[in-house]
Amino acid sequence: MTPRPVKPLLTSAGLLVLAACGQEQSENANTNLVSTTEIATIAASCSGCHAPSGTAIPSLSGRSAEELETLMLDYRHGDGTTVMHLLARAYSDDQIASLSAYLAEAPAP
């Protein structure tokens, strides 16, 4: 894969995404895993509702990190009352950026 430019705050998550794509684990794998565990456990909520077959709850497959981040930040900072508005407020902008990068790298089921 061709690495995309990664914002500084994405660095650790980005490294682990590379590892997930078959690159050699770095010596710092355990250090990196700290942040990846946090993002993986945060991302664990998403698949409780979002499936590839979804329509009213759209699929997350095949979306770029930029698209996911923009959508989530709009929910996070918007004044709407949908389920996504209510839940996006649980996360920091940094967490949303890392989560978006993580989800964008998930292989299609």
């Binding site: 990846t36 993986a40 989800l103 790298e105 292989p107």
Partner: peptide, 8 residues
Amino acid sequence: LGALAAMP
């Protein structure tokens, strides 16, 4: 298991 699919 979408949540775990990107887990290294």
